[in-house]
Amino acid sequence: MLIREFVDQDWSQVWPIIEEVIRAQETFPYDPTMTADQSYGMWVEAAPGRTVVAVDGQRVLGSAKMGTNRPGPGAHVATASFMVAAENRGRGVGTALCREALTWARQQGYAGMQFNAVVQTNRSAVELYQREGFAVVGTVPGAFRHPTLGRVGLHVMYQEF
């Protein structure tokens, strides 16, 4: 597996991953009716942010976007998001993408990384982030409407560098 910069030709493989994840409505608080064009604008970060893909040959396994969490007085904290194709989950793709984002954020001089809305019931993501040094610093009860579990919490997770 190789992690490299996203190029426009990757979108034809990245969009189906994003579409599957947002339509499932289980792990990301994105509008499930987003179009490919809307998702492109949301997912592909402009500089100084960054979007990457994890690939095996020509096949995209997953993608990550990273950048500044908030502008102005909050600009010293990074954020990132990760999506992995269903058939590639559990194979270390998410971990590799998370590590890539952390390395990038440190190299850019950020003081830490914050995840604003990690669905509490997304155990694989929560456990991955905790293994990589993040802590749950707060949970907004009932802030996410899960399609089968009803209202569940959204974690704010943080790692200081």
Score class of each variant (00 low, 15 high):
Arg4Thr: 14
Asp8Lys: 06
Trp15Tyr: 07
Ile17Ser: 08
Ile17Glu: 00
Ile18Pro: 02
Val21Lys: 02
Ile22Cys: 00
Arg23Asp: 12
Phe28His: 14
Asp31Thr: 09
Asp31Met: 13
Pro32Cys: 03
Thr35Arg: 02
Ala36Gly: 12
Ala36Asn: 14
Asp37Cys: 05
Ser39Phe: 11
Glu45Lys: 09
Ala46Met: 06
Ala47Gln: 08
Pro48Tyr: 09
Pro48Thr: 14
Thr51Met: 11
Thr51Asn: 10
Val53Asn: 00
Val53Tyr: 00
Asp56Pro: 08
Gly57Pro: 04
Val60His: 04
Val60Asp: 00
Ala64Thr: 00
Asn69Ile: 03
Arg70Glu: 05
Arg70Met: 10
Gly72Asn: 09
Pro73Lys: 09
Pro73Asp: 02
Gly74Pro: 10
His76Arg: 07
Val77Pro: 09
Ala78Gly: 13
Ala78Cys: 04
Ser81Val: 02
Ser81Met: 10
Phe82Gly: 01
Ala86Val: 13
Arg91Pro: 06
Gly92Arg: 04
Thr95Arg: 11
Thr95Ile: 07
Ala96His: 01
Leu97Met: 01
Cys98Glu: 11
Ala101Asn: 10
Leu102Ile: 12
Leu102Met: 09
Leu102Asp: 01
Trp104Pro: 15
Ala105Trp: 02
Arg106Ala: 03
Arg106Thr: 04
Gln108Glu: 08
Met113Ala: 15
Gln114Val: 08
Val118Ile: 11
Gln120Thr: 02
Asn122Cys: 12
Asn122Trp: 07
Ser124Pro: 15
Ser124Leu: 02
Glu127Ala: 15
Glu127Gly: 13
Leu128Glu: 04
Tyr129Met: 07
Gln130Met: 10
Gly133Pro: 02
Phe134Ala: 03
Ala135Glu: 15
Ala135Asp: 04
Ala135Asn: 08
Val136Gln: 03
Gly138His: 12
Thr139His: 06
Thr139Gln: 07
Val140Ile: 10
Pro141Glu: 15
Ala143Asp: 06
Phe144Arg: 01
Thr148Val: 15
Gly153Glu: 00
Gly153Pro: 08
Gly153Cys: 13
Leu154His: 04
Leu154Tyr: 05
Met157Asp: 10
Met157Ala: 06
Tyr158Phe: 10
Tyr158Leu: 04
Gln159Val: 15
Gln159Glu: 08
Phe161Met: 14
Phe161Arg: 14
